[in-house]
Amino acid sequence: MAQRNVVIGSSVGLHARPAALFVQAAARQPVKVRIAKAGSDPVDARSILSVLALDARNGEEVVLSAEGEGDEKALAELAELLQSDLDAQP
């Protein structure tokens, strides 16, 4: 199983547009990716409602996990997305 810790880079946190972009990207991955905040149960990264309910804020750390073919690559791509300030893009 692959796992990665990432700090949320988006200034508004993992909400609104950044959350939507992240969920869409997760849905494109060949493996099922889960996301968790420290101390919380991991949730399906393709579920916008679960991701919003995490309430992950700017500067907070989340844990991505996945298992299966291409898991490392999937996590690398999603981690990069989470680190950038998604809301700053047009």
Binding site: A20, S47, L49
Partner: peptide
């Protein structure tokens, strides 16, 4: 348009 697209995404939520 963004509000409606976001709502559509919620409606398609797999966990829901």
């Amino acid at each position: 348009a963004d509000v409606l697209a976001a709502q559509a995404m919620m409606a398609r939520d797999p966990v829901l």
